[in-house]
Amino acid sequence: MSKFTILHTFYNPVEAEIFKARLESEGIRAYVLDQNQLYSQIPSTMGGYRLQVETEYFLKAKQILDKSLENEE
């Protein structure tokens, strides 16, 4: 059974899903937690949408995420 680790927290559900798809295109299983919560409630009460990945791929996923976030700036 695989173990998962939180990679990043997003406050926009669309952005979380985009990064999830990006990681999956690289062969990394990813899940967005709390995606069934109402968007208006998340930033203030739930702490955002948490993107988790398989622990064994955490470092590779972090590199992909960091590079993607860098390119957005």
Rank of each mutant, 00 (worst) to 15 (best):
M1T: 05
S2I: 00
S2N: 06
K3E: 07
K3A: 03
F4W: 07
F4H: 01
T5Y: 01
T5S: 12
I6H: 08
L7F: 12
L7Y: 08
L7C: 08
F10E: 04
P13M: 05
P13R: 08
V14Q: 09
V14K: 10
V14E: 07
E15V: 08
A16P: 02
E17W: 02
I18R: 15
F19R: 10
A21G: 13
A21T: 14
A21D: 12
A21F: 07
A21S: 13
R22A: 12
L23D: 03
L23I: 06
L23P: 02
S25V: 08
G27S: 04
G27K: 03
I28A: 01
I28M: 04
I28Q: 02
I28F: 02
A30M: 07
A30E: 04
A30V: 07
Y31Q: 10
V32M: 01
V32L: 03
L33C: 02
D34K: 09
D34W: 09
Q35D: 02
Q35M: 06
Q35I: 06
N36C: 06
N36P: 00
Q37C: 05
Q37W: 12
L38S: 09
L38N: 12
Q41G: 05
Q41F: 09
Q41L: 11
Q41P: 00
P43I: 09
P43E: 11
S44V: 13
T45G: 00
T45A: 08
M46E: 04
G47L: 05
G47E: 07
G47I: 07
G47P: 03
G48N: 11
G48P: 09
G48F: 10
G48S: 13
G48A: 12
Y49H: 10
R50S: 10
R50E: 10
L51F: 10
Q52S: 12
T55C: 02
E56F: 06
E56N: 06
Y57E: 10
Y57Q: 14
Y57R: 15
F58T: 04
L59V: 11
K60S: 08
A61L: 05
Q63R: 13
I64C: 05
I64N: 06
D66I: 00
D66Y: 05
K67R: 10
K67I: 04
L69R: 13
L69K: 15
E70T: 11
E70P: 04
E70G: 01
E70Q: 13
N71S: 14
N71M: 11
N71Y: 02
N71R: 15
E72V: 11
E73H: 12
E73R: 15
E73N: 13
